[in-house]
Nucleic acid binder design. Sequence first.
DNA 1: AGCTGTGAACATATTCACAGCC
DNA 2: GGCTGTGAATATGTTCACAGCT
Lengths: 208, 208
Amino acid sequence: MKQGTIPKATVARLPLYLQCMQSMAPTETTVSSETLARMANLNPANVRKDLSFLGSHGVRGVGYDRLHLCMQIKLELGLIEAWQVIIVGVGNLGSALANYGGFEAAGFDVVGLYDADPEKIGMEFHGHMVRPVSALASDIAGSPIAMAIITTPALAAQEIADTLVDCGIRSILNFAPAVIQTPPGVECRHVDLATELQILSYYQARQA
Amino acid sequence: MKQGTIPKATVARLPLYLQCMQSMAPTETTVSSETLARMANLNPANVRKDLSFLGSHGVRGVGYDRLHLCMQIKLELGLIEAWQVIIVGVGNLGSALANYGGFEAAGFDVVGLYDADPEKIGMEFHGHMVRPVSALASDIAGSPIAMAIITTPALAAQEIADTLVDCGIRSILNFAPAVIQTPPGVECRHVDLATELQILSYYQARQA
DNA sequence: AGCTGTGAACATATTCACAGCC
DNA sequence: GGCTGTGAATATGTTCACAGCT
């Protein structure tokens, strides 16, 4: 019931609950914290506490109405309208993400691809022509583009991020293997694929 | 100095320190907790505490010897020898990851690609022929393959994971948009690309 | 009876503050 | 003087346990 500000850890789990509920059979109209917990590999109390931040939407003795809960989570996450997203860096990963259907499925529109390499300009992926990074500023100005995905090499990432921030982008998803510095007010998430394997390596190394 | 068991949060940051140090000029032979903290967007005390779990490798008044620290971290993470990794699911993402140089750069060897789709069998990416998932068991048995990356559609992910676990794989990096259940002793990390955007959406929606 | 919502207890993680050493 | 290493303090996150509602 503590409306207003949701703990980071909870925010990071809300999309997971959405995913779990979307994978349930359509006949399942209600869902309990225990079911969700089992699907998400969490503790039921954790699920209940998370959902309580959205307000009291459960019914005691019954559970949560699945569709209603999905809607509440989408509302809270700001997923009612599709955000427009651009991808900067059309290498292996960037072009794969451009073709990846998961972003659309999750409610995002990939509306533009950019690259610094003149050879890539004009290539088409997923119905979008690759445009030069020099066009970023004018393309973003006055457009509703809110988020950017960086899939450039590490060395280019910071410069691209600076450009994006200058253009008014305030949400960045960075796949380049480099930490990016952004001013306050800009949210930047870093997903490093090799890092994930290195973390696994630690646990792999100390078993068996 | 508290040898033996390292907190999860620290383990997740060790690769970051490696990355930061690898991006420094070769002339920089020592590095301070403050420098590392600035590069990694962390608090210097946090860095020092993290590194203290590796033992006392710093010199008061000076800092840490860069090469020595890199080696200590690699040792701790089990990155001295290259782990062999396979990729299951050669769609957009899987093939991009097969071609992605970052895993090799981070000390992993992608040694095999697998897919369930007969049309994909025999295709070549990054010097590897795609093999059928039915060959997984015999390919893994007796081989040093330790880790697997799942890039299948959501619906196939659990079944593939079960197969991998049966084959003795104990470290799984899952990119499929589905939670995977694994028995104790199997470490499974889940990276969901759409989820990352959805988390950003929350913060994007409540600013400006 | 069954399940939510939540205060209290516990666990983990981060930051402070400073002693200790170069 | 400058930087590490670390106990203590704080903040955040998770789990328990149970009251409260249907």
